[in-house]
Design a protein around this nucleic acid. Structure first.
Length: 315
DNA sequence: AATCCCGGCAACCGCGGATAC
DNA sequence: GGTATCCGCGGTTGCCGGGAT
């Protein structure tokens, strides 16, 4: 049995809302609230609209405290950071930006911020040195994915993107993203998008984001990476697992992923490894070159994600 | 001046989860 | 426990306005 339609499609109006409809809806909700039933609302309010349409109009446009207009750099950063972490969970991202709607953020990302974000990636490279079966070390230059605006600036306003928050929602993310199956699901996080961009294909792995650290120098790994980590916290972090848990999993496939967050005071990237100095450590080796963070360290107010994905192009 | 193209954005659609019965 | 209904979300569509040709 199919789902009953929420309204009579033939008798409801579609398309842009008129000012009259807006004021009717606004007045009705101000007087009566939504009544917890959007389906019934348009009839009660005297609108020839679908309940879903009313809800959308209210939430995205008419309700109080909606913020329209340009996004600030800080908002950019929050969006980039969260997108790199959780992907296109617009409602969650919107929850971090008071006054912004998920639709707004989604549109903004798709039309502007994504480009900005990708431009920022050009500023980063990773050098990967492989050992193991390959005796010769090979250096591969890779894109290092980072939030451009985030890396370009720091501001105390970044604080709301707290690691605490991300930690507290860890269960949610894990629940939704673990075991996702790399099958090209539209819901896969930025990982699939970015790896696709990098590799020119849809090939990607499961990215199960796991929060291991809620303190300064937070690090987010995929879970297998976590299992191999000697410590979730910066100083004791196992190099291999820190660098690319994904590489442990998939080294033979030459396709790896990791999600790193260097944040807060005490950036282990810098403290533990220094800028671009991993050569004394066993493979897989990674050096970060360029970029604000790998070279210069972070401070308490510049938290951002590196969501990195790379291919092993050994031939 | 007319047409085309493209980006931005509002709105729609369909699905999955939650809830009520 | 099963079914119907509602809600909310994310992806997509299509309109509109501005810039380019």
């Amino acid at each position: 049995m199919g789902r009953a339609p929420c309204c009579d499609k033939a008798s409801v109006k579609k398309g842009p809302w008129s000012p009259e409809e807006d004021s009717t809806l606004k007045e009705y909700i101000h007087k009566n609230g939504t009544g917890g039933n959007w389906i019934a609302l348009p009839h009660k309010a005297g609108l020839k609209r679908c309940g879903k349409s009313c809800r959308l109009r209210w939430l995205n446009y008419l309700r109080p405290n909606i913020k329209h207009g340009d996004f600030s750099d800080d908002e950019d950063r929050v969006i980039c950071n969260l997108f790199a972490t959780i992907g296109s969970r617009w409602s969650i991202i919107a929850a971090q930006l008071p006054g912004r709607t998920d639709n707004d953020i989604k549109n903004y990302w798709n039309t502007k911020l994504k480009k900005k974000f990708m431009q920022g990636l050009q500023h980063y490279t990773i050098h990967i040195n492989h050992h193991g079966s390959m005796k010769q070390q090979k250096e591969q230059q890779l894109l290092f994915l980072a939030a451009s605006s985030a890396s370009a600036s720091s501001s105390s306003e970044a604080a709301p993107l707290s690691l605490q928050h991300l930690s507290s929602t860890h269960d949610y993310y894990s629940h939704h993203y673990s075991g996702g199956g790399g099958g090209g699901s539209a819901n896969n996080s930025s990982t699939s998008l970015l790896s696709g961009l990098l590799n020119g294909s849809e090939h990607h792995q499961t990215m199960s984001t796991s929060c291991l650290d809620s303190g300064g120098g937070g690090v987010y790994f995929d879970e297998l990476c976590a299992a191999a980590a000697t410590s979730a916290h910066g100083q004791g972090l196992g190099m291999e697992s820190f660098v690319f848990g994904g590489s442990i999993i998939n080294l033979q496939e030459g396709h790896h992923k990791a999600l790193l967050l260097s944040a807060g005071a005490g950036n282990q990237l810098d403290q533990q490894y220094g800028a671009g100095c991993y050569d004394e450590v066993k493979p897989p080796l990674v050096s970060l070159t360029g970029g604000d963070d790998g070279a210069g360290g972070t401070n308490a107010s510049s938290s951002f994600f590196y969501d990195c994905s790379y291919s092993n192009n050994e031939s």
